Lab assay of single mutants.
Amino acid sequence: DETGKFLVLALYDYQEKSPREVTAKKGDILTLLNSTNKDWWKVEVNGRQGFVPAAYVKFL
């Protein structure tokens, strides 16, 4: 159920650099879980949760 969740689009490829991050490919649609940090947003992609740089994604 996606009610109340926001989707964001990956603008660039991002390769995770730590276990707390997730890899995303340009064009991926990610479920935004938390955007309270202006630099790192928590997302879910391909069943995995983790952080990506906020500058790499935008709201749909």
Rank of each mutant, 00 (worst) to 15 (best):
K58W: 09
G4A: 12
K26I: 08
F6R: 14
K25R: 11
V57P: 01
G47A: 02
W41I: 08
G50R: 00
W41L: 07
E21T: 07
A10T: 10
D13W: 09
K17L: 08
T3C: 15
K26S: 07
F59V: 14
A10M: 15
V45R: 07
G50I: 07
L60Q: 07
A24V: 15
G27T: 02
F6E: 08
E44N: 02
Q15G: 07
V57N: 01
K17A: 10
G50Q: 02
L33V: 09
K58M: 15
T3K: 14
L32I: 09
E16M: 11
N34Y: 07
N46V: 04
L9D: 00
L11V: 09
L7D: 02
I29D: 01
T3D: 12
F6P: 12
K42C: 15
Q15C: 14
K17S: 09
Y12K: 11
F59Y: 10
E21V: 03
L30W: 04
Y56V: 15
E16N: 05
S18M: 06
N46E: 08
Y56F: 12
K58A: 14
L7A: 05
N46Y: 06
K42N: 04
S35A: 14
D13S: 07
N34E: 14
Q49I: 15
K42F: 15
K38Y: 06
T31D: 02
V22L: 10
W41Y: 10
L33Y: 01
N34P: 02
G4S: 13
V57R: 00
T3N: 12
L7E: 06
L9C: 13
K42H: 12
W40N: 00
K58P: 02
K25F: 09
V8M: 07
E21G: 11
A24F: 15
N34M: 07
F59L: 15
R48L: 07
E21D: 05
V43A: 01
N34R: 05
L60K: 05
T23C: 08
E2F: 13
Q15D: 14
L30D: 00
E21I: 05
T31I: 15
A24Q: 09
L11R: 03
D13P: 05
Q15I: 15
D28V: 05
N46P: 01
V22A: 01
D28G: 04
E2K: 14
E2S: 14
P19F: 10
A54N: 03
N37L: 08
L9G: 01
E16T: 06
Y56P: 00
A10N: 01
V22N: 03
N34G: 07
F51K: 01
S35E: 05
K58D: 09
R48E: 05
G47N: 06
L7Y: 15
T31V: 15
V52M: 11
K58E: 13
I29Y: 06
G27K: 03
G27N: 04
Y56H: 07
I29E: 01
A54L: 05
P53R: 05
Y14R: 00
L11I: 11
L9K: 06
S35C: 15
L60V: 12
L30H: 01
V22W: 03
S35Q: 10
G47K: 04
K5C: 15
Q49R: 11
T31R: 13
P19A: 10
V43G: 02
F59W: 09
T36I: 08
P53T: 07
A55V: 10
F51I: 05
F51R: 00
V22P: 01
Y14V: 03
K38A: 11
D28L: 07
K38G: 08
D1N: 14
F51W: 13
A24C: 15
K5H: 12
L33R: 00
A54S: 13
K17I: 05
Q49L: 06
N34I: 08
R48V: 09
F59M: 14
V22S: 03
V52R: 00
V43W: 03
F6L: 14
N46D: 11
T31L: 14
A54V: 07
T23E: 02
A24K: 04
N34H: 06
A55L: 09
R20C: 15
L9R: 06
R48K: 11
D39R: 12
G4N: 12
F59I: 15
V52S: 02
G27Q: 02
F51N: 01
Y56A: 14
S18A: 07
D28K: 02
Y12F: 12
